[in-house]
């Protein structure tokens, strides 16, 4: 049944669902635990604030579903805030617990001498060109909009970073759990290729 785009009452899921469709993939926008767990892959989008998003996930029981999906080996991709939620905790308007699928914290850009949010096209630096998400791709620009960024505890989880006054976590992954801080559905050709690589991963038979 393709990819389950997790609907927990926040944000516009239309763009990402159309992007998957354009790549020849199938997707369903759903908040139903059974449908999510039966999907070939799971996409966790997100806009807004960390605490609100976790609250929505918890109140609908989808936080447990995400952990179950991760444990089952389903390829799981968090986008933007969806990537941030994969970590242990976030400091947006107070400290909030995240899904805890990746060790690390989400903190605000300090700003002052540079602009916050980090908004616009910035260049990816591939730290793990051998990652299945980066297979066959060349470094290039993708579209970011965010005021908070993730500090991954395990350096090995960092697949790509971008430079914004400091190295900023752009793509993370561990096992079957992946995240992208930028919006692949708004990132032109490279964004499409990155999503396509995720789709390929989803189509691979799982052992």
């Amino acid at each position: 049944m393709g990819i389950a785009i997790v609907d927990y009452g926040l944000g516009n899921l239309h763009s990402v669902s159309k992007a998957i469709e354009r790549l020849g993939g199938e997707s369903t926008i759903t908040g139903d635990p059974e449908e999510i767990l039966a999907a070939d892959g799971v996409l966790l989008p997100g806009v807004g604030a960390f605490g609100d998003a976790m609250e929505h996930l918890r109140s609908s029981g989808l936080d447990a579903v995400m952990r179950q999906a991760a444990a089952s080996g389903q390829p799981l991709l968090g986008i933007c805030l969806g990537m941030q939620l994969l970590f242990d905790e976030g400091e947006e308007h107070g400290t909030h617990r995240g899904l805890g699928l990746l060790p690390g914290r989400v903190v605000r850009f300090k700003g002052g001498t540079y602009k916050v949010p980090h908004m616009g096209w910035n260049r990816l630096e591939f730290l793990q060109p051998e990652s299945p998400l980066l297979r066959g791709l060349a470094e290039g620009h993708v579209y970011f909009v965010h005021s908070y960024h993730a500090l991954a505890e395990r350096p090995g989880d960092l697949i790509a970073v971008t430079d914004y006054e400091q190295p900023v976590t752009a793509i993370v992954g561990h096992g079957n759990v992946f995240g992208m801080q930028f919006h692949p559905e708004k990132s032109g050709q490279l964004g499409k290729q990155l999503l396509d690589n995720f789709l390929k991963l989803v189509r691979e038979p799982r052992s």
């Binding site: 516009n12 239309h14 763009s15 159309k18 992007a19 579209y143 559905e185 708004k186 990132s187 032109g188 050709q189 964004g191 499409k192």
Partner: peptide, 11 residues
Amino acid sequence: VRKTAGEISIP
């Protein structure tokens, strides 16, 4: 706007 959002991959 709705149709454009479904067709393009830039903001």
